[in-house]
Amino acid sequence: MTEHLPAGRIAECVGGAPTPEAQRHLGECAQCRAGVARLESALGQFREAVRGWSDGQSEAALERARAAARRPGRAWFRWPVLAAAALALIAAPVYKTLRDRQRAAQALADAQLLEQVDREVSESVPSPMEPLAQLVSWDSASQDSSQDSSASSSQNGEVR
């Protein structure tokens, strides 16, 4: 009897790729055969346990997914969601154009308002007092003109 199979060789046998030497050895060695059988048995029981566990959870999980799909906003089973998404894609450029136009109109209105404010701020007196201010300015204008004429007369050496 040769030495027992090294651990890696047993894994290869269980994994479905035994070397010819390993196969020959398994035919002769009950201990290594038992080692392979133990691992295969454990893996088989593990598979059955996981499958049974999954079968017990699967239906409930599918129902949860379907229930979630029926709730608004989570409709992974429903085409209307895709239709709505497509509609949104089409509507987005239209909405953007309308919004751009609104923004342009608003910007124009803002500019006009600012211009008006600037104009009013630059005025020397408030608009209700404008007639009075005009009277004052006419008066001062006439005084100014008389002062101007006397000044020019004295410059010219004229005597009243």
Partner: peptide
Amino acid sequence: FRFALASLRDPDAAGSVAQ
């Protein structure tokens, strides 16, 4: 679902992955 459950060991996460 089974593969996702065996991998993640969480039924909710497995359902989400399967979906």
